[in-house]
């Protein structure tokens, strides 16, 4: 079995010339993006610009019309079955609506990847499920509940716990803080940041939450006009003269998030 090397240099995700098309509607055309190891990259764009489609393409869930996508330096199309599994277990994915398995309890959902890839004692798995839920900000009472018994925000946390269960290298988050209360959203940001620092995680984050973008993203990729318009730290994006970018970051919400960020930095400085 060819094990995919961990300590490769270069970008962890490389997208080149991607083209996605549904019928006559072209979503992506000649889209390039590269994600570096250990960075948190935020993906923003108006509704319908294909943020989720891009994520699904990278995950290999969406067949694309043209282009090349490599993860860990390997093209994702045409991998042997074993290699594909090997790559997949380095992913953690948080889908927009959680996508928890409805017939399993929350704790069992977290254990699914562990069961699938490892043979552990039940005791160890139960302990792992406990602390994973804790990491995602859920109390022990959430464990035996079914996803249908959880609120939207809790479902999101449970889904994050499942995404983290294999200690992935690469975490995909599709609008993780949407539907969370501001306190929960801030805690979520903090958690992602902590995990990144402790584990060297790479995070691919789709979000509309400007606070999240300012607080945790190293770079932000802007999807517009069917491609990645720019992928840079927010500071540099602010310099780009594009109407959508300007509206997005300099609009009322963008300004308040910016102000909040400055405040935070000031506080951190003192």
């Amino acid at each position: 079995m060819s094990v995919i090397k961990d300590d490769q240099r270069g970008p962890i995700i490389q997208v080149e010339g991607l083209r996605n098309q549904f019928g006559s509607q072209i979503v992506h055309e000649d889209l390039d993006l590269s994600v570096n190891r250990g960075e948190i990259i935020g993906v923003v764009g108006g509704s319908g610009t294909g943020k989720t489609v891009l994520m699904r393409s990278i995950l290999g869930l969406q067949e694309f019309a043209a282009g090349k996508i490599s993860i860990f330096g390997k093209p994702i199309t045409g991998l042997a079955e074993k290699e594909e599994l090997e790559v997949r277990r380095r992913f953690g994915v948080l889908f927009q609506n959680g996508a928890l398995f409805s017939t399993l309890t929350v704790a069992e959902n977290v254990q699914v990847p562990l069961r699938e890839f490892h043979s552990m004692t039940t005791e160890l798995m139960d302990e792992i499920a406990g602390y994973k839920l804790g990491l995602a900000g859920l109390g022990p009472e959430a464990g035996p509940k079914y996803p249908s018994e959880l609120s939207g925000g809790m479902r999101k946390r449970a889904a994050l716990a499942r995404a983290l269960s294999l200690d992935p290298r690469l975490l995909f988050l599709d609008e993780p803080t949407a539907g969370l209360d501001p306190i929960g959203a801030a805690a979520f940001d903090h958690l992602i940041l902590e995990l990144r620092d402790a584990l060297g995680l790479t995070v691919f984050l789709i979000t509309h939450d400007l606070d999240t973008l300012y607080t945790i993203c190293d770079r932000v990729a802007v999807l517009a006009d069917r491609r990645v318009l720019a992928a840079a730290p927010i500071k540099e994006l602010l310099e780009i003269d594009h109407p959508w970018i300007q509206d997005y970051f300099r609009g009322p919400r963008g300004r308040s998030a910016m102000a909040g960020d400055r405040e935070n930095r000031k506080l951190a400085g003192t």
Partner: peptide, 17 residues
């Protein structure tokens, strides 16, 4: 840092009633 983090998160949970 990791140990502190998991320590903070540590809890026993019931898997299924």
């Amino acid at each position: 840092a990791l140990m502190a983090q998991v320590g903070k998160a540590n809890q026993m949970t019931t898997i299924r009633h």
